[in-house]
Amino acid sequence: AKKCQIILLKPTSMNAIYHHIQTIGQIFKQVEKAQKCISDIQTQLHLISEKVSEIPENKRKRVARLMGRDSLMTPGINSFQNEYIRAAGGIPHSIDKKGQIIPVTLAEWKNFNPQMIYGCGGDRYLEDTLFQKSGWKDVDAIKQGNIHYFPCELTCRASTQTAYFVTWLSATLYPELFQEKAKKIYPEKIFQTQDVDLSLSFVRTAKIAFSHVNDLVCKTLMIDFKHPQY
């Protein structure tokens, strides 16, 4: 019987993402597309790095990734999720515990005093339970209602969507960097189009237009009909 080689790809850092994309590109003989994917991620991350570089260290916000159900948990100091926070311009915790998920004591929580908290869908439970208790609720993020939730597919995975999530997180942390005209890096215009084959008799052409809006990439489906549609 022929033996089948099994390859397990489980990136634990942002750099590992690039290596795994290259590996997949080699396996499926799509090396150029894999490199293009890596380049796109790096370009977007560089943009965010440029935007947040003007924020002084003492003005950067402390950010906590919320995890857990019955007790407060967070990614360990060596987790890629803390890399996401730093890439977005935030300050992650410095609790000296390693692992994908670690427990957080009340003393550690109060000492870090996060200014923003984020999690994914199921993490809302703690907001309704633990964060109603004295001590746990007495941090800046909770006092100011600065708690946000994102799709688990973005928060919990080191993937090709890394740059999208870092951008979203950064824009949530520092909306003024993306809203103020003087802070914009890219002009707001279409910079690329991609044809789409809809194979519909009433459609002349269709394409996706890529443009920058507040330095974020916006995709618009543009359809040219052969006749007016009512």
Rank of each mutant, 00 (worst) to 15 (best):
P75T: 08
G119M: 04
Q179F: 01
K183A: 08
Q192W: 04
L72R: 11
F210D: 08
T220C: 01
W109N: 07
R124G: 10
I85L: 00
A88D: 04
I27R: 13
P92A: 01
N58E: 15
W136C: 12
I190K: 05
P151D: 04
C156M: 12
V63S: 01
E83W: 00
P75Y: 00
D224F: 03
F150H: 03
Q115L: 05
G68A: 09
E57P: 01
D96N: 15
D140I: 09
V104E: 09
R124L: 09
K137R: 13
A34V: 07
D40W: 03
F112G: 10
F165I: 00
C37V: 10
M222G: 00
H93I: 00
Q44N: 12
P92I: 02
F131C: 13
P56H: 03
I85S: 01
I142V: 15
A209I: 03
I7C: 10
I27P: 12
S71H: 09
K226A: 00
M67S: 13
I48N: 08
R204P: 00
A158C: 11
I6R: 08
L130S: 09
H46D: 14
K207R: 13
T220H: 05
K10W: 06
C120R: 11
A158M: 05
K33V: 06
Y164T: 11
F178A: 08
P151A: 03
L177S: 01
P187A: 14
L9Y: 02
G119D: 08
Q35H: 08
D70H: 05
K10V: 12
V104G: 10
M14F: 02
D138Q: 06
S79E: 07
A87I: 01
L154T: 04
L72A: 07
Q5P: 07
A34T: 07
L66W: 04
T105A: 10
K59R: 14
V52G: 03
I38W: 05
C218K: 14
P11L: 07
G99S: 11
E153D: 10
V52S: 02
H20E: 15
